[in-house]
Each structure stands twice: as structure tokens, then as C-alpha cells.
Design a binder for these strands. Structure first.
Lengths: 128, 128
DNA sequence: AGAACAAATCGAACATACACGATATGTCTG
DNA sequence: CAGACATATCGTGTATGTTCGATTTGTTCT
């Protein structure tokens, strides 16, 4: 039940021996992704990688809220909330709409909600 | 075409006036998400929020690779690659398999690939 | 056993991210 | 227009993340 893995090991070794003085990247350079895509992904995931910002997005699931309401949801100072909202907006995760004194925020794309749902589905191992 | 938004504004104002000495959280506490879910999401997104780690995952799309191959893909020192792989494994994004001298890494769950795809779909606004 | 290699861990320098008070900008209301 | 309020921005102390040389651990081969 383990013989199927032998071939892979051989491939790994073979590659190293074949390209001794040549470019050692072998066939691996084809595994390198598009630069712009990586940048977008890193921006998006970076914006999602924060407790407060996740809470904001979850709160916006059921519809838009103004900044002052999000302040209540987060139980955090105004300036803290404002800076998180800016991060989310810069990453394209939320859109804002100004209405008089208030600024209303809403989820920019359903993809954002799908991202949130998928992340909860991942099984994070507990490290003792 | 803009009158539907008036009601929301009124609600916001009404809530503040109603609960003057009471708990000001109004109906907003229902918008607060589950604590454990947020922690999982933050862990997952935190692990995804890095160029090198995204490249690793993209490289693993087509099948498992050993650490030394990933080192070639990333064009980074061994210790750097190793620490990123540890981060990915701790977050549950990849699984590892030891075979003799080598450690092979693979995507832990198809949800990880879906996360990567969804992130590229988000339209990040360019800030001038 | 000892040389050669893969990989994990450690540690310290360096870089980013975050929190949040203070302050500035913009808007409604009397 | 003054005063109250909603937000955005700025500045700075602090926390967290990243890099990577050096070292350690583990495995294979001779």
C-alpha cells in the first residue's frame, strides 16, 4: 500500500542527478505562480488576518452598518475601528457609502463571505 | 431611488436615543460572531497572508513536493523555507509526510485551493 | 563509525502591523 | 456661526512577523 510513493522519490533523485551543471530548477519553475495574482492574494489575506476585521465582516453579513455601530460591535476605540475599516476598504473587501454625518460599510463581494466560510472549514491542529 | 436608505439612518438614531442609560449595544450584539470561529479564521488567514507561503501552496497544487524542491521554487534559504512550512502546517493548510531523508508536503484540504482561487477573484482597488 | 545530505530549531536583527490618544475634517442643527 | 457629533488621519509606543546564519537532529551510504 506504499509502493505508489516510491516513484516520486525516484523522480526527486533523478531530477537532481540529471541537472548537475544545468539550471537546478528542473521542471519546478513551472510551479511558480503569476506575480500579480500572488500580490492580490497576499493583500486580501493580509486584510483578513485580524480578529477585529473578521468581526467587522461577520457583522456586515446581514447588511450594512455605519462606523459608529461597528464601534459598538467591536467594543474598541473609534480610531482603532476607523483604521481597520480603512484596511478593509483598501483591500477591496468592503465598500463605503457616505450619507450625511455617517459612513455606511457593506461587504464588497459575496466572495468575501465565501472566504470567511471556507476558513472556518479548515481543521486547525492544536499544538500542545 | 434613495428613500429606502432613510429608514436605516432613522434606526441608527433611534437606537442611540432609546438606550441612553441602558446597554448601548442595542440589537448589535447579535451581530457578534462565534469566538472559536474567529480564532480559526484568523489563524488560517494569518498563515495565508504571506507571499512565500502563497507560492508554496500554489506550487503544491499539482501534487506534493519535498522541502528541498520548495526551496528551489521559492529561491530562498533553507531555514526561511522551513519556517514558512511550519507556519503552514501549524495552521492546518498543509500536511507533511516523512520519507527517509525527505519531508514531503501536500495541500491538506481542497478548501485551501478554493481560498486561493477566491482571493484572486477579489477586485483590489489601486490607491494612487 | 563517519561523511554527506535533508530538514528542523534557535536566536537575533530587522521590518510590519496594531492600538489608541490627540487632532483635523466634514456635517447637521439650533 | 457655534456646538455637537461622526469619521478620518497622524504620531508613537508596543507587539508580532520575517529573515536567515548557525546549530542540531535524523537519515542514508560507504
Amino acid at each position: 500500500m506504499s509502493e505508489t510513493n516510491e516513484t516520486l522519490e525516484e523522480v526527486c533523485r533523478t531530477l537532481e542527478q540529471l541537472y548537475d551543471d544545468e539550471d537546478p530548477t528542473a521542471g519546478l519553475e513551472q510551479r511558480r505562480p503569476n506575480e500579480d495574482a500572488v500580490e492580490t492574494q497576499a493583500t486580501v489575506f493580509g486584510a483578513l488576518a485580524n480578529d477585529h476585521r473578521i468581526r467587522v465582516l461577520e457583522a456586515l453579513r446581514e447588511g450594512e452598518l455605519c462606523a459608529c455601530e461597528l464601534q459598538v460591535v467591536l467594543e474598541a476605540p473609534q480610531s482603532t475601528v476607523a483604521s481597520h475599516l480603512r484596511t478593509l476598504r483598501d483591500a477591496g473587501l468592503v465598500k463605503s457609502r457616505k450619507k450625511g454625518k455617517w459612513t455606511y460599510y457593506r461587504i464588497a463581494d459575496t466572495a468575501v463571505l465565501e472566504l470567511l466560510d471556507l476558513a472556518t472549514a479548515v481543521a486547525v491542529p492544536e499544538n500542545d
